[in-house]
Design a protein around this nucleic acid. Structure first.
Length: 560
RNA sequence: GGGCCCGUAGCCCAGCCUGGAUAGGGCGACAGCCUUCUAAGCUGUAGGUCGAGGGUUCAAAUCCCUCCAGGCCCA
């Protein structure tokens, strides 16, 4: 935390060179090399000495009481902090701040709008939608934790030609009861049937119905409304199960009324031009942005421009994130540039947070052919698998269903979030339903283990312990790891990468398990003082694991 | 044709932004560890030209260039 700053000041005072000491300081690869290290290579030119010599000379720095030792190791200067100070400071902070540990107020009075999940109402909510949903949800929590006011927007895909297809399919083959039973899957069945029966005549009918819809035809609108309302209700049920929340469900259709206005505005700014019958905005270095095609309805870009302007007006954000897959990169660049060209200086605050595609072992998923994996099925499958394991391993567990749900969802979410979002992610049932190794359940299990110790201790964990009793390598490593939590959260936020946080808690859980096997906390053969100290470490580690999991949108059950 | 992303053990991945001390995990394989805090765990062994080549640097998986392979987008 601020030990880094303090050491930098120390070095600056000693060397009197104008350097960014803080960023030069690093954490050594091995705890035996100290808590912080200062590489001396860069100084050798200025000081006209060999790095080894410089490091050696610097060991003479007068040690303040919070530093135990300063040693040189080749060209490195290693700082060993005084455990009394260092351990106490970290553990006390966690103990005091509890669920707030790791939070900050750097986002105070700033608003971030995050657009995520955003499914197409007429198309199925497939496993591919997991990415945007999980990443966006986590970014929502992380940024809130840093003090930002966050607005989560589900920009529903509730408009487009697919509605023409669905309307005609529903009129031909539809059944109201089936629709009400399971609107999302039923609409999807109709969508697939439409494409099975695909013919030019059918396509034309679909186009005609969408045209009617765009022109405000009552029958078309009524059917559309029915589809939207029923689907949204179903989506919301599912979001509740996953514990994913939004502040707004304002979808594409809501901006229909603004499209002409936006086009007029852009025309008035003189940045549009006609090209082959289409209205476009020419841009530097990238392909022009199409606002309106010759015959067809307005394109996505116009709608997104309308939505961005609306969001700026309503929320006055300092940043707006679009958690959308990487294929849309150009599209975002284009409409951001159009806004920029139109003179909206806040267009620089718009940011596309892209993620790689979901891939499948056996070819690609095809929406039209009905070869699709529903996210709901994946989650239910995970929950069922967890249930089986609970029955086997912990049959006496109370509220089994609830825990199975938390762990099942945790497995699916963590699987996605632990991978760097920019890379493609290969869907594999075996991997998603794996609960061992680098998985969500592993982290949750670690938390449950820690909680179990605290339960069995049967007394309040003492806050004043003898910090010099942390002598084991694993204990020291664990405490140093806890110290990094604040930094990790900020890093995850800056990069908009929950994976940074996921990797951290995974590593923390691994360390805890190693500690768990070597360091006994309870029992007659453990000295009282040692027990107290270790219990405090267990409690603080559990707290950080929990905070980390929650920021990923994953629950931390006390038992599993 | 133009642009963006990616390439690290048999497989999946972290590290790359911000260059530093022997390149880390997981799965799978093999060998161990439950009368003691939850074995969804832990320990050990085997497994690496960090896609290739060049450059910058005291130092390159990390930065720059070229090439190769894969993915995506635009016309």
């Amino acid at each position: 935390m601020d030990f880094k700053k303090k050491i930098s000041e120390l070095l600056k005072k000693e060397l009197k060179l104008d350097l960014d000491y803080e960023s030069l300081l690093e954490v050594p690869p091995n705890i035996s090399l100290g808590n912080y290290a200062f590489p001396c290579f860069k100084l050798s030119k200025d000081l006209k000495k060999a790095p080894n010599q410089i490091a050696n000379d610097l060991t003479k720095i007068k040690k303040p009481n919070w530093i135990k030792e300063i040693k040189s190791n080749g060209p490195y200067l290693n700082f060993y902090l005084n455990p009394e100070h260092y351990f106490k400071k970290i553990l006390k902070a966690i103990e005091k701040q509890k669920d707030k540990f790791g939070s900050s107020n750097i986002g105070k009075n700033k608003t971030i709008v995050i657009d995520y999940s955003s499914p197409n109402i007429a198309k199925p909510f497939s496993i591919a939608h997991l990415r945007s949903t999980a990443i966006g949800n986590s970014l929502y929590k992380i940024n809130s934790f840093l003090g930002y006011k966050v607005i989560g927007i589900n920009y529903l895909g509730d408009w487009g030609l697919q509605f023409g297809k669905l309307i005609i399919a529903f009129k031909k083959w539809g059944d109201n009861n089936k629709l009400k039973e399971n609107p999302i899957k039923y609409l999807y069945e109709l969508y697939v049937k439409f494409h099975e029966q695909e013919s030019e005549a059918l396509e034309n009918e679909a186009r005609a119905w969408f045209c009617k819809l765009e022109n405000g035809d009552k029958e078309a609108l009524d059917i559309w409304k029915k589809f939207s309302t029923l689907s949204l209700k179903e989506f919301k049920k599912f979001y509740t199960l996953m514990d994913v929340k939004f502040d707004s469900f304002k979808g594409e259709a809501a901006y229909n009324k603004d499209l002409n206005k936006v086009i007029r505005m852009l025309k008035n700014k003189g940045i549009t031009e006609m090209s082959e019958g289409a209205l476009i905005v020419k841009l530097e270095n990238i392909a022009p942005c199409l606002l309106k095609k010759k015959d067809e309805a307005s394109l996505y870009a116009t709608r997104d421009i309308a939505a961005a302007i609306d969001r700026k007006k309503q929320y006055n954000f300092t940043k707006a994130l679009y958690v959308v897959d990487v294929r849309q990169s150009l599209h975002f660049q284009q409409f951001f540039s159009v806004l920029n060209k139109a003179g909206f200086e806040w267009s620089k605050d718009l940011e596309h947070v892209p993620f790689g595609l979901m891939r499948f072992k056996e070819g690609t998923m095809s929406t039209r052919k009905g070869k699709i994996i529903f996210l709901e099925d994946v989650i239910n499958n995970a929950i069922a698998s967890v249930s089986k394991i609970i029955k086997q391993k912990n049959p006496k567990l109370k509220n089994k269903e609830k825990v199975a749900q938390q762990v099942g969802i945790g497995a699916v979410f963590f699987w996605d979030l632990s991978h760097d979002r920019v890379k493609d992610l290969e869907f594999d049932w075996e991997k998603v339903l794996d609960f061992e190794g680098e998985t969500g359940p592993y982290v949750q299990y670690t938390f449950a283990r820690a909680s179990s110790i605290l339960r069995k201790a049967k007394k309040k964990v003492a806050s004043n312990v003898d910090y010099s009793l942390f002598k084991q390598d694993k204990e020291i490593k664990l405490i140093s790891m806890l110290d990094r939590f604040n930094e990790v959260i900020k890093d995850a936020a800056v990069q908009s990468k929950p994976s940074v946080l996921a990797r951290f808690i995974l590593e923390l859980a691994q360390l805890f398990n190693e500690f768990y096997h070597i360091c006994k906390c309870l029992g007659n053969d453990v000295e009282k003082e040692v027990s107290s100290a270790r219990l405090l470490l267990v409690q603080t580690t559990a707290q950080v694991l929990k905070n980390g999991l929650n920021l990923l949108g994953i629950s931390a059950p006390l038992e599993m």
